[in-house]
């Protein structure tokens, strides 16, 4: 479900004038997708899933259930053995700048400064120089990287590096951002900070997010909708809509009764899968 956009950054013009996306207009569709490294060992079978414009969707599920595979299929890194992956109604043919990807780590360009990393996607876009600079500046402020613009990735902590990675993907405003356990490698405190910033960014930059995680807490805190995948090609086991008080990034949401209720429900469902 789309959230109202905050106006605090309208001056910076990071986003187009916020247009409320049609509530359930599909941006990504998987219809009866089957995939496996070989035909005899499938990872996904006949999976149908729809991602709506602007929503924050999280995939949860036991290891090996195909969460990352779904993400790789949408990104265009893999091709399905059967079925169809579509983006805005068009079949996905390969990687595209309309679908951003944030990896678990190690995807920054070590030879470029923070600023150069973030501005990388703009090399392939025809925007005015001023516009590019402004957008980079805005996103650097949004993720709290001021003062580190000229630093190189090796001079940053793990959390800071992931901030750069998120900013780099988000600044070009993809229609969907695919995140494969992006915060798995950082410590808990840093992780919580990153989650809150991600939610703030999601409010500023229109576009859907598909998030893959093992953590139930992370899923509840971040998502509008959580999809649990079953073991053994079982497909979608459960779907939960999450409604927590706005703004969603308030840390207090983590200790609310509603949050705990969602967590308990999801925990029991995950247990049921085994």
């Amino acid at each position: 479900m789309p959230r109202p956009s905050s106006t605090s950054l309208s001056a910076a013009n990071l986003t187009e004038p916020y247009v409320q996306p049609a509530a359930d207009k599909e941006i990504i569709g998987l219809s009866q997708v089957t995939f496996g490294y070989s035909r005899k060992r499938l990872v996904l079978q006949d999976l149908t899933l729809s991602i709506r414009q602007g929503e924050f969707l999280t995939l949860l599920g036991p290891s090996g259930c195909g969460k990352s595979t779904i993400l790789n299929l949408i990104a265009g890194f893999y091709k399905p053995l059967a079925g169809l992956v579509t983006h805005g109604g068009e079949p996905v043919k390969g990687p595209s700048e309309r679908r951003g990807v944030v990896f678990q780590g190690n995807a920054l360009f070590d030879w470029m400064t923070v600023e150069q990393n973030i501005a990388f996607g703009f090399r392939f876009q025809s925007l005015s120089k001023l516009e590019k600079q402004q957008k980079v500046k805005t996103i650097i402020q949004l993720v709290g990287l001021q003062g580190s613009e000229r630093k190189y990735p090796y001079q940053l902590s793990g959390g800071m590096r992931q901030r750069v990675a998120v900013a780099r993907s988000m600044v070009v405003q993809p229609e969907i951002l695919l995140m494969d356990e992006p915060f798995a490698a950082v410590d808990v405190q840093t992780r919580e900070g990153l989650q809150e910033e991600l939610l703030k960014l999601h409010e500023q930059v229109s576009g859907a997010i598909l998030f893959v995680t093992h953590s139930i807490e992370e899923a509840v805190f971040l998502s509008d909708r959580i999809v649990i995948l079953d073991r053994n090609l079982g497909g979608i086991y459960d779907e939960t809509l999450v409604q927590l008080p706005e703004p969603r990034y308030t840390p207090m949401n983590r200790v609310s009764d509603a949050f705990n209720q969602y967590r308990t429900d999801l925990y029991l469902k995950m247990k049921a899968i085994g």
Partner: peptide, 28 residues
């Protein structure tokens, strides 16, 4: 690392740009 090449690709880089900005510096 493969992620670096894929990241560049999802940011809109084509082969020539990937050579110039990713593979060549990574191999330096």
């Amino acid at each position: 690392p493969k992620q670096k090449i894929l990241a560049a690709r999802t940011l809109g880089a084509k082969d020539l740009a990937i050579f110039a900005y990713v593979i060549f510096p990574a191999a330096l």
